[in-house]
């Protein structure tokens, strides 16, 4: 037998603390989880929409990609189709630009104006953007095109919500 024998009193103390601890933890854990929940949710915010585009098919030439998601507008739910111009820049990085003109919100297109090849062109007021989305000085737009954050999963391109970029 060992020298420190556990007395009856000690044994009861240990077991009661143990059991009590478990019970307290059982009560407190859900509460803590409840309080912390909003934080966890914010971390998991992933508003990315799958496009039909395979990442291998992205070239250096901007191409039009349409993707559809559900949008709730007051009580009216609808499917909204967004467009992005997607290409790989010289460093091989994927760039996804929003087609919405920063002037008054018309839709720009790549390479549609004969006098300005390899630029994004806005048909409304003849705004121009360079391939990297920078607005051309002297045309109406005052800011570069918005850029979509992107993710690649299983070889498919996912696009998030378009974000404005810094001033040119």
């Amino acid at each position: 037998m060992s020298k420190n024998r556990v007395s009856r009193r000690q044994f009861l103390n240990y077991t009661l603390t143990g059991v009590g601890g478990f019970m307290a933890a059982g009560m407190l854990m859900p509460m803590v989880r409840f309080a912390v929940d909003p934080v966890l949710k914010a971390n998991a915010a992933g508003d990315f929409t799958a496009t039909k585009l395979n990442v291998d098919k992205i070239t250096k030439e901007p191409q039009r990609v349409d993707f559809t998601f559900e949008q709730k507008d007051a009580w009216y739910e609808s499917e909204v189709t967004n467009t992005a111009w997607v290409y790989k820049n010289d460093e091989g990085k994927i760039v996804a630009l929003s087609p919405v003109c920063k002037h008054l919100g018309c839709v720009v297109a790549w390479n549609t104006d004969k006098n300005n090849p390899n630029r994004f062109f806005c048909p409304c007021h003849f705004g121009l953007y360079e391939k990297d989305g920078m607005n051309v000085k002297g045309t109406p737009p005052l800011a570069p095109l918005d850029e979509y954050p992107y993710k690649v999963k299983d070889g498919i391109l996912y696009l998030g919500k378009a974000k404005p970029r810094k001033e040119a």
């Binding site: 008054l104 018309c106 048909p123 409304c124 007021h125």
Partner: peptide, 8 residues
């Protein structure tokens, strides 16, 4: 309208 919203 969606295409030309800035001029129309």
């Amino acid at each position: 309208e969606r295409q030309f919203r800035g001029r129309v």
